[in-house]
C-alpha cells in the first residue's frame, strides 16, 4: 500500500525511510536538471523584455528614445512616383513588388471610382480617359502603416515579425520561414514574399537610415513635401505638432490596427 513519506521521527524509522545512499544518488541525478532549470530561467525572454535597453552596439542610437510617426498629405501629392523609385533603389526591392506605392483615385459625380496604380506608380502616371466626367481625382501614397496593434505580428508562427521600441514593424529575415501568413493578415497589402530570399518583406521606414539620423528614402525623395516622417518623442519635431493638432485619418480604421501612418486630406473613397 502506498504511504506518503513522513519525516523520520526516530533512528528506527530513518532506516525504513530513505537511506542516505538513495537520497544522495537521487539528489545527484536530479541536481543537473534543477540547476539547468534555474540557470535557463535567468535567460527567460519574459524577464528580460522591457529592460536592458540602451544604444545599439557600436552606435549612439537608442531605440527607446524614439517613437516614430508618418504623415502623408494627399492634397500635396503630385503622383510623380519618385518615392516608389527611391524606395526600390534604397531597399533593392525586386521589380513588380512594392514596399510603398502610389494609387490614383478618379471619382465621377455619381461616385464611380477608378483606382489604379500602374507599376506601383514607379514610373509616374500618364493622362487617362476615365469615360465619365471627373468630379475629383487625387493620388494616395500607400505603404506599411506600422500599426501599433498589428495583425501581421500576431500571426507569425516563428516570431520573425516584430515591433521595435520605436514603433517600427520589422521582419527578421533570418527567422522568417516564408509561410506568408503575415502577407495574408495585413489588411493593407503592405507585405510580400521576396522572390529571391523567399522571406517576407515590407517597408521598414528605412530602419537603416533612421538609425543613422536620416529620413526614410521616400520622405527625402518627395519633391513637394507630401510625405513627412518624425519622432513623437522629439518636442521640436514638426510631425509631432501635426499629429497633435491636425485632423488626421488612417486607412481602414474599422480594423482597429491603430496605424502610425496618418493621412491629411483624406477622402471617403479611399480604401
Amino acid at each position: 500500500m502506498f504511504k506518503l513519506p513522513s519525516f523520520p521521527q526516530s533512528a528506527e524509522e530513518e532506516v525504513v525511510g530513505v537511506s542516505r545512499r538513495d537520497f544522495l544518488t537521487g539528489a545527484l541525478k536530479t541536481l543537473p536538471g534543477a540547476a539547468l532549470f534555474v540557470g535557463l530561467l535567468r535567460f527567460s525572454p519574459a524577464k528580460a523584455a522591457g529592460q536592458a535597453l540602451g544604444a545599439l552596439p557600436g552606435t549612439d542610437y537608442d531605440p527607446a528614445e524614439h517613437l516614430y510617426a508618418y504623415v502623408i498629405d494627399i492634397n500635396k501629392c503630385i503622383g510623380c512616383g519618385r518615392c516608389v523609385k527611391a524606395c526600390a533603389l534604397e531597399n533593392k526591392v525586386p521589380d513588380h513588388f512594392y514596399r510603398t506605392w502610389v494609387e490614383r483615385y478618379v471619382v465621377s459625380e455619381q461616385g464611380e471610382t477608378i483606382i489604379e496604380s500602374p507599376d506601383g506608380g514607379k514610373n509616374g502616371f500618364k493622362p487617362m480617359t476615365p469615360g465619365f466626367h471627373v468630379a475629383k481625382a487625387y493620388f494616395v501614397p500607400k505603404m506599411c502603416n506600422h500599426c501599433a496593434n498589428t495583425p501581421c505580428i500576431q500571426v507569425c508562427p516563428v516570431g520573425a515579425s516584430y515591433a521595435t521600441p520605436e514603433g517600427v514593424v520589422l521582419v527578421d529575415n533570418k527567422r522568417c520561414i516564408g509561410c506568408g501568413y503575415c502577407v495574408q493578415a495585413c489588411p493593407f497589402g503592405s507585405r510580400f514574399i521576396n522572390p529571391i530570399t523567399k522571406t517576407a518583406e515590407k517597408c521598414t521606414w528605412c530602419y537603416h537610415r533612421i538609425a543613422k539620423g536620416l529620413k526614410p528614402a521616400c520622405v527625402e525623395a518627395c519633391p513637394v513635401g507630401a510625405r513627412m516622417f518624425g519622432d513623437l518623442k522629439n518636442e521640436r519635431d514638426p510631425v509631432r505638432k501635426i499629429v497633435a493638432q491636425e485632423h488626421l485619418d488612417v486607412l481602414q480604421p474599422e480594423k482597429l490596427t491603430k496605424p502610425r501612418c496618418y493621412y491629411l486630406g483624406f477622402d471617403k473613397e479611399i480604401r
Binding site: 527567460s44 523584455a49 516584430y162 521600441p165
Partner: peptide, 15 residues
Amino acid sequence: GKYGFFRGDNLKEQA
C-alpha cells in the same frame, strides 16, 4: 528579448 519579444541582434543587423 533584449529589446522586446524578438531577436535583439536583428535590430543591429537592420540598422
